[in-house]
């Protein structure tokens, strides 16, 4: 299975990714590995803007034909925007998980929390271990 794990992102054990944007906000999505495991996505529900999230809170749902899965907030903060484009095209999560398939943008409560997440090599190790 091909696993694209971009070096510049941070990751969680539950297969979310976080991108730190230049303006201090963060963008969140699910990893290439996760979209692959779920299969063809048919629906995505993202958190509404303004919602306050605690780290680890289930706040989005992605659904394929064979599974519906919660997506957990990697960081605490306030939701700036959910990806409205997914309503008509959830397949963007399959085709471009790190780009157009993003789930929500967040104003983190403390951006330094990012440092506690896995880096690309740590996430790759996690994938290698779970494949054994």
């Amino acid at each position: 299975m091909s696993n694209n794990v971009p070096a510049e992102l941070r990751y969680t054990k539950s297969h979310e990714w976080v991108r730190k944007n230049p303006d201090g906000t963060a963008t969140i999505g699910i990893t290439d590995h996760a979209q692959h495991a779920l299969g063809d996505l048919v629906f995505a529900e993202t958190p509404e803007s303004g919602r306050t999230l605690a780290a680890g809170e289930a706040c989005a749902v992605v659904e394929s034909v064979k599974a519906a899965s919660d997506v957990y907030a990697p960081l605490a903060g306030t939701v700036l925007e959910g990806n409205g484009g997914l309503a008509d095209a959830p397949e963007k999560i399959n085709t471009d998980p790190y780009g157009e398939g993003w789930l929500w943008k967040l104003k983190p409560a403390a951006i330094e929390d990012l440092e506690a997440l896995l880096d690309a090599s740590g996430y790759q190790r996690l994938l290698a271990e779970s494949a054994e």
Binding site: E63, S64, V65, K66, A67, A68, D70
Partner: peptide
């Protein structure tokens, strides 16, 4: 829409 159902979603 079977992903909502018990045999897949179990406790949720």
């Amino acid at each position: 829409l079977q992903a909502r159902e018990q045999h897949i979603r179990r406790g949720k």
